[in-house]
Each structure stands twice: as structure tokens, then as C-alpha cells.
Amino acid sequence: MQARRKGKSYELARPRWYVPLLFLLPAMLVMVAMVAYPLYYEVDISFRSVTLYNLRSGNYPWIGLENYKSMFEDPQFFSTLIRTVVWTVVNVVSHVSLGFMLALILNRKLPGKAIIRVLLILPWAVPQYIAAIAMRNLFNETYGPINLVLKALFGDGATVMWLSNPANAFKAAIITNIWLGVPFMMMTCLGGLQSIPQELYEAADIDGANWWQKVRNVVLPLMKPVLTPAIVLGTIWTFNMVNVIYILTYGSTHEAAQILVSQIYKRAFEFFRYGYAAAMSVVVFILLVSFSSVFIRAQKLED
């Protein structure tokens, strides 16, 4: 009996090598089949000519850097890249600042805040495409409430061609995406705030810190481990957001409201230029990996 007990606790301290592997095996199988291999395949086809004509044959001729060359020669690529950066920065900055502010408020003693919190996470709770289509209809030029209100307040001239003008469609998409993304940041920040012990605030109070000093010197440093991954993830998700752009510019052919990812999607599945789209995806992926590693290094948050 004694010996058996010893054997068991030994097993926990140093399990047989295959035990974690067995727990991980299903995850590894799916990730290899659906991520690792497709990734390899993607890089491969970015050097090949894949079009609608040879799609089903499975025989794609090697054309070297041709896809990359035509991409970098396309002036639209760079304007789209700049637009994507604007899209990402505006969205993430708004998500984090608004989310953080709301979390600070909801972290206070406030009767009724449970209900308010539920109402505030609604945009996250509703399926994204439904929310995006709802917003699209708020932006409807003749019947949408936004223009109706603008008209009532500022007269006929104040209405905005939200959806037919690409620059405005882009603005409408940004507003929609800010609306969608704040709840996630709010909940993440709220979780972080709740993990800060009350004594720290009290200590800061005794030292005579004002509100801003408390936020800057107590809350923000302690929130860094929460905020860093949330910002990295938020940036990636925003950079890669196809849904909102796709729905808000649905049915229009103009390219001036597209970001890189939605353009990849269109190039691949509407213009059937698969090889070209693959080359674009590889570039986007490299951009995101470099951003994330630089950002995480800068925050000195390496494990």
C-alpha cells in the first residue's frame, strides 16, 4: 500500500512522457490538418498561377515571384495598406480607450450596474453579421435613422451619402466596428480592474494621489499584463475583420472602402485570382507577425 502511494505521487510529479501528448493529440491533429498544412500550401500557391481555369485540374504552373511582382506594382495595394493601417489604429485606439473608460466606471460602487453591464455588452452578444446589417440600415441614405436625425437637426444639406460614397462607407464601417468591439475590451479591462486589490487604491489615497495619478501610476501598470495581450489580439482581429467591411460595402464594386483582407477575399472568391490572393495573404501575415513580436517585445512581456 505504501509503495503504491509513492508510485502514484511520483506519477504526478513526473508523468510518463506520453501523458501530455495524449491530451494534446486531438488539438494537434486538427491544427496540422487545418492550419499547418494549409499554411504551407498557401505559401506554395503564392508562387503559382492558380485561376478559375486550372482550379479543378490541381495542376498549377510555377511562376516564381510573378504574383508578388504584380501586387507591388499595383498602386492600389499601397493605398489599401494605408487604409488598413488607419482602420486598425482608429478602431483599436477607440476600443481600448472607450472600453477602459467604461470599465473604470463599472468598477465603481454604482447601484444597477449589473443591468447596465448586460446592456453594454449587447453588441458583442448579438451575432456579428446581424449587428453589421442592422448598422447598415441605420446608415441607409433615405430611410436610415442617422440621416433622418441629421436632416431634422441640420436641414436637408446635412445628410451624408453613407453607403454610395466609398470614403463614407469606410467611415460607416469604422463606426460600426467601434460599436462592435468596445464590449470585449470593456469586459477584459473590467476583469483586470477587479483583480487589483482595494488596498492599493487606499494606499494611494493616503499618499494624496488624485484620480489621474491613481489611474496612471496604480491602475495602468497593473493592467499591463491584461492590456498587452488584449491589444495584440484586438489589433489582429481588427486588421483581419472581413465581416463588417464586406457587409457595409456589399453590392458596391468600388475598391476605395476595402482593407487588405477584404480585398484578398474579393480577389480570391469574386475575381478568382487565387495565386495573387495567396501572395497578398502571405504579405499580410508577415506584417502581423512582425507587428505582434515588436509590440510584445516593446512591452517586455516575454514569458
Binding site: 494534446l24 483581419n240 514569458d303
Partner: peptide
């Protein structure tokens, strides 16, 4: 640790990026 980081990296793939090869694989 490498595995955990890799999982984070998978979030960086634009959906259309993997969709394309997966689609071609499924067609095959």
C-alpha cells in the same frame, strides 16, 4: 511555451488566407 505561442500566431492568419488553401484542398 512554443505551443502556446503558436496558438496565438494562428490568430494572425486572415480568415481568407487559410480559407483559400483549405478551399483548394476540399475541391481536390
Amino acid at each position: 511555451k512554443f505551443g502556446m505561442t503558436l496558438l496565438l500566431v494562428t490568430q494572425m492568419f486572415p480568415a481568407p488566407m487559410l480559407l483559400l488553401p483549405v478551399y483548394l484542398m476540399l475541391v481536390r
